[in-house]
Design a protein around this nucleic acid. Structure first.
Lengths: 385, 385
DNA sequence: CACTCGTGGAGAAACGTATCTCCAAAGGCT
DNA sequence: AGCCTTTGGAGATACGTTTCTCCACGAGTG
């Protein structure tokens, strides 16, 4: 069979070896033109079904696989989406360090594949070495810090960028975030209702939006209800520092009787610190932390957690990005406004390119005093979809 | 500046908009040929440093970024490596379900980036839709089942494939695996030494190498020491089934006094089951499970775990793959033998394309009887590097 | 009979790079 | 002076698609 394809080559260009079958070989073997093969395989031209199926059959027989590189070069689309996480220090990779990232990445991958795109995991720190060598149709950025140069450059060069986490000063095509303020206020109210008089916060030193908004919400709440803020901040990327900070928080003279920890490991750290100081949870100390891990369902006692719904976020981010990619008129690349598909701009005032997603408070024993009071319904932030 | 580049275009091909600067624009602006630009930027030709730096400067000024698609088409290398996990049912994505995968993927990503490659996460199940649309230089396959059609096709089409887990019948370029037999034997000996008389196994129903080799090692050991095998198997991708199987194992009339669980969640499941039956760990029941999770350091009691060293595996797999990629003579694609770089074949008998990596047993309270005997040094499997 | 019109398909121009081949000029040597 | 070698660089081709343009032809229509 391959012999037929070989001998029918019109021009023996150079000395062509029998490498992989190209579209030319298929065309020759089927006795049609290249155009017809392309159209038949992509369902594009006006061809009778008989020609179409015949070409398809020949292609199958020759084991023809279109060259992704050539297609990308021609069409300008690679079907590849970059995924990067920027925040938390210069560590090579914080990925999957927290369950949040793992979950989010998984959901994003699934959503992308469902629409025919694949995800490429890229480091935010690395130089253009890698970024420049890959044809990306768009990029998802997790938690970009203010003034992220990477995001700016991508955006400037016409690559759509959607961020998980409201960006500070970087221009992005769109962003998705939780309503962190509502979430924190909900938790503080929940703890107050459970009897807390002085609520402490375990927070981070980074400048990312999550940390900033959450802390601000806490401080605002304190100001409103007239409580003196009681918090400790530490570099969130350092697990050891988290344990130390938890200990410090409970060692203070103005020790809180309830604590909310912003990061995943804070729950176990606080629990350990509480044991060290002989504090019973929840009797002496109410505990809530933000985590996607289900280990908190099995701790002693089980700990109330705030879920940021990473799966929903990952899915939404990817869908927004692909919408933007497929809505772009591949023409005047630089024009920023063009990056938005029509439906983003039709509305009179134009909705902002941001979407707030609800969080979910999973109430467990650690945030409920053992009062005979029955169940406490978990507060939901406004804007629930 | 861009105006100069525009007006110096020799042929105004069509009506060229000022899209992105191409290599032609740089050449025109610098007053040299395309060849010179390419050579200058890639450090390839024989050019005086002065020309080189001048071209580089002009390129920088124009914000020139080479087209990855064109480069890939021309060179045949994309710098992209596929990463896929095959095993465990038809679920959309088992990725990061177990900490092993997450760790392994993270290490693989890092290693690849370190050598200038990026990883694309792909599903093993999906049709050629996605696989065919991406130019892959090679693929890492985690735990391929026997006769994996995907692996066969990749291999046949000339894409190097390296698998994590010794493949059954698929042809691969190379593979890396733990010495599962040695690991299991080491654990069984460890448990025996701690006083176990009847050791049970919690295993899976899949046909992947890990499950098969581990189970066979267990059965062989039983035959050797004359113990009746006591085990339960369940579909490893279903966490609920794991809890049920753990319960079943401890409910048996010939209840074991020590159990090794092959999968990550088995530790907590077995612990829970033991509590249900009033068994104290380690007094009434010795426990070991295979897991990369550090939650077992904090359980009550802490549980001895076997680590498969996913980071080391991920790194090794990627490095082997890239070695194969870069050693390939891009010529007679089909020839299988050529896929191996020279150093794999020079040795007389030729070492097999497989590498066994050591595991590590992390001994904790759950596998040590409270005897006054002091510390038990953890047994290491042979072949430790 | 001249004409439009729809059908089926071929030709050729990109897409943007890397690289092979070849050439001109300037020494250095006998 | 003639020849060889090195330096610096230009030209052209190929990588394998997609797609725009255009053509031939048979059938209906006035």
């Amino acid at each position: 069979m391959t012999a037929a394809a070989n001998q029918s080559g019109r021009r023996p260009t150079t000395s062509r070896r029998l490498e992989r079958a190209g579209i030319r070989d298929v065309a020759a073997a089927a006795g049609v033109s290249i155009t017809t093969v392309s159209d038949a395989l992509n369902g594009k031209g006006r061809l009778p079904d008989e020609t179409r199926s015949r070409v398809r059959e020949v292609a199958e027989r020759l084991g023809y696989r279109p060259s992704a590189a050539a297609r990308t070069l021609r069409t300008g689309r690679s079907g590849l989406i970059g995924l990067t996480v920027t925040t938390y220090g210069e560590e090579p990779f914080t990925f999957t360090e927290f369950a949040y990232f793992a979950e989010m990445a998984r959901a994003a991958t699934s959503a992308a594949l469902g629409r025919g795109y694949a995800l490429v995991v890229l480091p935010a720190s690395s130089r253009h070495d890698v970024w420049g060598n890959i044809a990306l149709d768009g990029t998802v950025v997790i938690d970009p810090p203010d003034q992220d140069p990477l995001v700016s450059e991508l955006y400037r060069s016409g690559v759509p960028v959607v961020s998980d986490g409201k960006p500070g000063n970087c221009p992005v095509t769109a962003w998705v975030d939780n309503d962190h303020e509502a979430a924190v206020l909900g938790i503080l109210d929940h703890l107050s209702e459970a009897g807390a008089r002085r609520i402490g916060l375990l927070t981070g030193t980074s400048t990312d939006t999550y940390t900033r908004l959450s802390t601000e919400a806490y401080l605002g709440w304190c100001a409103k209800v007239g409580q003196e803020p009681v918090y400790e901040a530490y570099p969130a990327h350092d697990p050891a520092a988290g344990a130390v900070a938890a200990d410090r928080l409970l060692a203070r003279p103005d020790r809180p009787d309830a604590v909310y920890g912003l990061f995943d490991p804070n729950g176990t750290d606080l629990l350990a610190a509480a044991r060290r100081y002989g504090l019973r949870v929840p009797d002496d100390l109410l505990l809530v932390c933000c985590s996607e891990s289900d280990v908190y369902a099995a701790t002693e006692p089980p700990i109330t957690t705030l879920s940021l719904k990473p799966r929903k976020i990952g899915t939404t981010v990817v869908n927004l990005l692909i919408d933007a990619i497929e809505g772009v008129d591949s023409g005047t690349g630089v024009d920023i406004a063009r990056l938005f598909p029509p439906r983003f701009r039709t509305a009179g005032t134009g909705p902002p390119p941001g979407t707030l997603m609800p969080t979910e408070l999973i109430v467990r024993a650690s945030s409920q005093r053992r009062s005979p009071r029955t169940t406490v319904s978990p507060p939901r932030p406004p804007g629930e979809v």
